[in-house]
Design a protein around this nucleic acid. Structure first.
Lengths: 174, 174
DNA sequence: TATTGTTATACTCTATAACTATA
DNA sequence: TATAGTTATAGAGTATAACAATA
């Protein structure tokens, strides 16, 4: 919430908190976001930002980012996947996937196997090290997700997931 | 949905659609995202990406981006706002806000007024042109939002907004 | 001709350290 | 000394055009 970011509302009982405000007669002491608050997209951006930040922190010990993590999981779960399929599945452009795959290959978490029947393509496969790192990372992300949802009931969670999928469907045809 | 991105599932009746699949015996014809699908964050990222893209397209005619739009709306709604308050409200770092304000000022949509009682600070105010552009942009974003929510009932919408706020609260203290 | 992977490139968003001028 | 705004910089995500090898 925007309003909560203001010092006098940020934590504890506001009535008990005495904080110098920057000349309330001069500027604004309370930032109104009335217009923006009406939009779901606004709340999605703010929520996604904190999720992104927390996930990055979660994956840091494994030297993974959201994108390298997602790619690794999908390759582990789909041995033989091709780069174009992976790019499609991840909703990233083919050129942007190349550096992600480069990094995973350099760290020997996956291999690029040539496809004999189509020498243009690569079949992506996780190595043992890749599968092991993936397993640990998934466990960490599961813990991150539990933090994320600690005060949310299962019904709400399912509603949110369904809503996110609906939004994707509504806009991807526009 | 990931699965929907595969050609044989992408549109229409799958049974009626005959499409060449890339050697189903060799690679994978259906990308399974079982592991990732379990995470709310995964769905949020995908949904937010399409929202972001559609919003960018929506704001393009006004030469605004999500951040310049948000800043403009907040300044219009909070005349006299200072940059540090705005940065706080927008959840962006102070240095990153500078270029946003620079751009809005260069386009004469806002002005930086010196605060007489604190010569370090600026009071941000929208110009007439700024307020007029803002009004049009808000209308366009409202239409974008309606596209976003065209198949979502109001209850679900409210649930999603509450959930986004809850997620922010859960993680921002970590 | 079309597709797979690639290179190069550009724009945006995010994050940090360090500076200046005020307080 | 602390704060408001600034500069510089770096990392990451996203998007497009154009190329070589192959189909």
């Amino acid at each position: 919430m925007l309003s909560l970011k203001n010092a006098h509302l940020s934590s504890g009982d506001p009535m008990k908190t005495v904080i110098k405000e920057p000349e309330p007669e001069m500027g604004v002491s309370h930032v109104s976001d009335e217009t923006l608050r009406a939009f779901v997209g606004y709340h999605m951006k703010r929520a996604f930002n904190v999720v992104q930040t927390d996930l990055a922190r979660t994956l840091k010990p494994f030297d993974l980012r959201m994108l390298t993590y997602t790619a690794l999981v999908l390759i582990v779960d789909n041995p033989g996947l091709r780069q174009s399929q992976l790019a499609d599945a991840m909703d990233v452009e083919r050129p942007n996937l190349v550096v992600i795959i480069d990094e995973l290959e350099r760290r020997e978490l996956i291999v690029r196997d040539r496809v004999p029947t189509d020498r243009r393509a690569y079949a992506l496969k996780a190595t043992l090290a890749g599968r092991q790192l993936c397993e640990k990372a998934v466990a960490a992300v599961t813990a991150h997700e539990q933090r994320l949802l600690e005060n949310m009931d299962a019904t709400t969670r399912d509603t949110v997931i369904a809503a996110m999928q609906l939004i994707q469907k509504s806009l991807s045809k526009g």
